[in-house]
Design a protein around this nucleic acid. Sequence first.
DNA 1: GTAGGAGCTGGAGTGCACTCCAGCGCAAGG
DNA 2: CCTTGCGCTGGAGTGCACTCCAGCTCCTAC
Lengths: 156, 156
Amino acid sequence: MTTVETGTTVGIREVAEHSGLSVDALRWYERERLLPRAPRGPDGRRRYPERLVGFVRLVVALRRTGMPVADVREFVTLADEGAASHGRRMALLERQRENILRQQAQLADDLAAVGHKIGHYRELIVAGLDCEGLPVAPEVAAAQRLTTVQTERTAS
Amino acid sequence: MTTVETGTTVGIREVAEHSGLSVDALRWYERERLLPRAPRGPDGRRRYPERLVGFVRLVVALRRTGMPVADVREFVTLADEGAASHGRRMALLERQRENILRQQAQLADDLAAVGHKIGHYRELIVAGLDCEGLPVAPEVAAAQRLTTVQTERTAS
DNA sequence: GTAGGAGCTGGAGTGCACTCCAGCGCAAGG
DNA sequence: CCTTGCGCTGGAGTGCACTCCAGCTCCTAC
């Protein structure tokens, strides 16, 4: 990635806010070579040019869709080769696209499974039945309809 | 979960093969109370009734869609209460359904981002241009089209 | 000038979700 | 009877991807 430092640049804080990565993670990513090195300003601070900000976004998407950091590193290493690695980079992304499509299919299945179970509970509640299909006792009926989960997690 | 042990049961190996969890993970899940305890046969081995096999599948789907084990444990703990916790269990699943929908939206975005980048590379390759829009040198053109990624990962 | 905030670097620490290991028992087959 | 394979339990270990910490510099505002 030939960074010609023209145009606007943004600091690490702003990149973090827009990318979903933490400031620490951005630094770690650079150290781990998951991102090209961001140029430094005269004060030693990172200044991300627009192009690099876009690259961060792509890397975040690759991570978010499950690409291991070793593979991301490979992608970034290829990027250092310039145009000579376009085809290989493209192939890497095409493989990831296949992965994403698989995840989408799996997610649809899982959504259906969860939805099916929700429907099952709803039917039981409406009919006032327990899991064996027997009527629930009157003193249980109110509790059966309760949807409030009393946990400390709710408070946070 | 009132397990009436009638009907067929399957051993841990078979449950592992069909659930996507390893045998070790199934044991860990039970120990961590992410699954109800599977009844043991006369030889001390786990025998999973059909109902429990279905529950394993649901728990796997919840994990796969990002539910932390602490929340899965909560879900399982509620299941111990029988019909009295139907509503609360349903609410938990409804929240997870919302999460899954969010993931689907995010995945679609990420797919689009990857696809867009793939298209970008393809255009550059077809036009024989580099990232700056300049024609690539003849000795680079062949490499630019290469899609074979030479890594040890490919061999495994 | 001083204080405070932001960011730098290098190194250590952490959280999460498993996976591996060791010793044991049981059952089937030779 | 012996061997082998499967599964049990409890405890330790591991991999992955960050996050935290400490000491430092620079810059701005008071």
